[in-house]
Amino acid sequence: MELFSQEDKMSSLISRNYTLLPVINRFGIRLGFKEKTIAEVCRENDINTDFFLAIVNTYTDENYFPEAELLSFSPVLLIDYLKNTHRYYIEYVLPKIEQLLNQVLLSCKDNCSSLKMISTFYQKYKAELLLHLQLEDEKVFPYIIDLYKHKKLNTNGSSIEVIENEHTNVEVKLSDLKSLIIRHMPPNYDDNTMNEFLTALFQFENDLNDHARIEDHILITQVLEFEKELRK
């Protein structure tokens, strides 16, 4: 894989990695780019090109970690993007996954108790994920926005380290869900429907992992640096 650069054609970005489709949408970019380059499309949509590249490259290569000089953009920009992503999960992805799961359940004729437990397990996972997203939307992001606005540390000494919660628990549950279905559950369901459900899960997992990587590696790292400076 080669890193995307600003002279690349926007259309080649999608041909090389179609899972970026929802990502560019979150930036407000829509299809029909003709021969325009990434830089041109970004300029037209009023998007910071460095920021856009950092996001799509992190998304494409899980080992990629943009360097400090590349992180010239403000965390507030990043938060906008992350919030958009949360909305996309809550309003589009989760309902779609649930709909597919319901179809799988409906396709089961007998001995469906295992499937029902999978469904309960999914609900538990979803509740935990929603809580995580809510905490970020209501506590973590506002804290960061405030910090950058007032350029002053909280008097009660709270810092981003205390507020940001871990991603491990939700990640583990999603991986367990897949494992239970793929390895341990008797296949009492329609195969095509289950494949669709699993495909959606895999895609969601990818998207979520990337999202968490951006939060942990780009956003939180930046805020930690900023807090350190303010403490001086």
């Binding site: 583990v172 239970l180 341990h184």
Partner: peptide
Amino acid sequence: KLGIKSISGLTVYAIMN
């Protein structure tokens, strides 16, 4: 062995089996 880590995941496995 199972590829399952969370307590509730292991619980589902135990009930299924």
